[in-house]
Computed example of a mutant assay.
Amino acid sequence: MASAIRAGARLRRAVQSEELSGLPAALRDELREAVASKDSLVPFNLLRRLHSGLREAGSPLFLHELLRDSDIALPEVPVQPRDMNHGTLAEFGRQVRSVKAVVITIFNFFVTVVAAFACTYLGSQYVFVETAARVLSAVIVASVVGLAELYVMVRTIEGDLGKL
């Protein structure tokens, strides 16, 4: 985050000339040091005091006029060098195992639901004579088994995500 500006020509001229003579001497000296420093960086807190000093002194100068050609000094953001060999094969293997586990879980879900439907459909022939009743009972049992499977899967995934 920016915390200073690079003094422009207008601010330098004002500090070096007598335009800021109405300000307290300590503030003028601090401004001279900041403008004369490396990169001419003037911190924001010094600019706030300059603004207050200009208002108290009744100066015809405005802070925005002094800062017209100044620039905000943004800090350099360090860029981390990329490491192309970091965990390439290990990361790929871990991702393959993760995808494999998800595919097996989904396959297991469908096999369980189909098996529940088939067992109920075949077993209900001893209870119901009509096909519609057999299909309806098989759908109900397959739905209950599917919901139970989903509940167990969600609880497992929730537990796995909690460990991350």
Rank of each mutant, 00 (worst) to 15 (best):
L47N: 03
E18V: 01
A57I: 03
P78Y: 09
V139Q: 07
A138H: 01
A2S: 14
A148Q: 12
G8D: 02
A73R: 09
L164K: 10
T112Y: 04
E33F: 01
G53V: 02
V129Y: 14
A26K: 05
E91W: 11
A138F: 00
A133S: 15
P43Y: 04
F44W: 14
L27N: 02
A90V: 05
V113A: 15
R32F: 01
A118H: 04
Q95K: 08
T105P: 00
S124V: 02
R97V: 09
R32N: 00
V154A: 15
S70N: 01
F110Y: 11
D71L: 15
D83I: 11
L136V: 09
E91H: 06
G146K: 06
H51P: 00
G53A: 06
T120W: 02
S143N: 11
D39Y: 14
R134W: 08
L50C: 05
A26L: 10
Q80D: 09
P60Y: 04
D29L: 11
F62M: 14
V77R: 13
T156V: 13
M84Q: 09
S143R: 04
V15S: 01
G53R: 09
S40I: 06
V135G: 00
S3K: 06
R94M: 08
A142E: 04
E33T: 11
V99P: 00
F44C: 07
R55E: 14
F128H: 07
G58K: 06
G93E: 10
P78G: 12
V42W: 08
R6F: 15
D83R: 13
R155M: 10
A7W: 03
L63E: 05
L23W: 01
R13L: 08
A73I: 09
F92G: 13
T112E: 08
L41V: 05
V35I: 07
L150I: 15
V111L: 14
T112D: 04
E91K: 12
G53T: 04
R55L: 15
E91L: 11
S52L: 12
T112I: 03
L147C: 10
F128G: 07
E76G: 12
P60H: 05
A7F: 04
F44A: 08
I157A: 15
L11T: 03
A90N: 12
K163I: 01
R6H: 14
L20P: 03
L27I: 00
H51F: 05
A7L: 05
V77P: 00
K100M: 02
R68A: 13
V145S: 06
K163C: 00
I5N: 00
L27V: 02
L150Y: 11
L66W: 05
Y151E: 11
P75D: 11
R49C: 01
V144T: 14
P81D: 06
S21C: 06
G162S: 11
V79F: 10
A132R: 13
E56R: 15
A142P: 03
Y151W: 13
D160C: 05
T88E: 13
D160H: 09
S70V: 04
Y126L: 14
S70F: 04
V15N: 00
E158H: 11
L136Y: 07
R32W: 01
V114T: 12
E56C: 01
V99T: 07
V77Y: 08
L20W: 01
